[in-house]
């Protein structure tokens, strides 16, 4: 039987080299960031050995940069650290709320946005929130770095677009403009320590008159992957985000959902609740955007 092994490279190049070396040998390798999903999977049914490549010692995966045009969040930064950055919370409240919803305080101390994304669970909380704010994924591999819109990154239940030898370095996010804001809501039976039964991320940009000129709406836990719902965004754009617009967007989300019945919820329940979440999250994003007189540059 192949042994487990643990390596902790200290640069992107080293990490890529490690991944390439083990890929060539046919080893099963897995990138370790916070480990809050991976270690549970290793304790469970999937106990086959693997090489763990810990990317937490790579400087770039720990880099947090709030630029004038762009925000960069390293893939290995724990959610708790992100939520302790007041400016980031102010800029992207929805995304940070989504990050804050991943598990307990303990889990927050480890879990990362990058890990939540790579784990590619249909119910991953940050994925719809990332889609809503237009995250671009920075990927490193043998051929250098490439970028990919987050909505293309997750390709199926538990499957992402990374190729052998690649890993996620970080996330690029356009810095929100004035009168723009995001929100994320999810539904769980308990207040904490639960997996989303449905989730919805929304970002809106208002013009000077309070009309919605840009919107992105994404839903989670109601399809094999989190999905962007252009019809919901279209229902919002050009409106004052009044009740009628919110109801139309909600209906678009319910229509776009293709949920399953499982231990966490039924098809009917998920379809209905994802619309409720869209309505409520959009109202929150709207109120935030209205409250934001001038933001950024």
């Amino acid at each position: 039987m192949e042994a487990f092994a643990y390596v902790a490279p200290s640069s992107i190049d080293e990490a890529v080299a490690e991944l390439a070396r083990h890929a060539k040998k046919g080893h099963r390798t897995q990138v370790l960031a916070g480990g809050t999903d991976l270690l549970v999977q290793m304790r469970g049914a999937d106990i086959e050995p693997r090489i763990l490549v810990d990317i937490k010692n790579v400087a770039e995966t720990n880099r947090l940069h709030l630029g004038n045009n762009e925000i960069f969040i390293g893939a290995a930064i724990p959610s708790a650290v992100l939520n302790e950055n007041a400016e980031l919370v102010e800029l992207l409240p929805g995304l940070l709320e989504a990050a804050d919803l991943i598990g307990s305080t303990q889990i927050q101390g480890r879990a990362t946005l990058g890990g939540n994304l790579c784990n590619a669970s249909p119910a991953g909380d940050t994925i719809p929130a990332m889609i809503a704010v237009g995250v671009s994924c920075v990927i490193a591999g043998g051929k250098g770095q490439r970028e990919m819109p987050v909505e293309k990154f997750v390709v199926g239940v538990g499957r992402n677009a990374l190729e052998a030898g690649e890993f996620l370095v970080g996330l690029k996010i356009p810095r929100p403009k004035s009168r723009a804001a995001d929100a994320y809501l999810r539904f769980t039976p308990r207040t904490e320590m639960d997996i989303a039964v449905a989730g919805c991320g929304v970002s809106v940009t208002l013009d000077a008159k309070g009309l919605c000129k840009e919107a992105r709406v994404a839903i989670g836990a109601v399809a094999p992957t989190a999905i962007l719902v252009p019809a919901a965004a279209n229902a919002l754009i050009g409106t004052t985000l009044d009740d009628a617009a919110l109801a139309a967007a909600a209906a678009a989300c319910s229509d776009a959902a293709s949920p399953i019945t499982d231990k966490r919820g039924t098809i009917d329940f998920r379809r209905k609740v994802v619309g409720v979440l869209c309505r409520r999250a959009t109202a929150i994003a709207r109120d935030r955007a209205l409250a934001r007189k001038v933001l950024g540059v």
């Binding site: 643990y6 902790a8 549970v40 724990p78």
Partner: peptide
């Protein structure tokens, strides 16, 4: 199994000893 690692609250069941 809560412990603090560098003053950060974590579940020690979700931290590899090697880390």
């Amino acid at each position: 199994c809560s412990v603090l690692v560098d003053d950060r609250l974590v579940c020690s069941c979700l931290v590899l000893a090697a880390e």
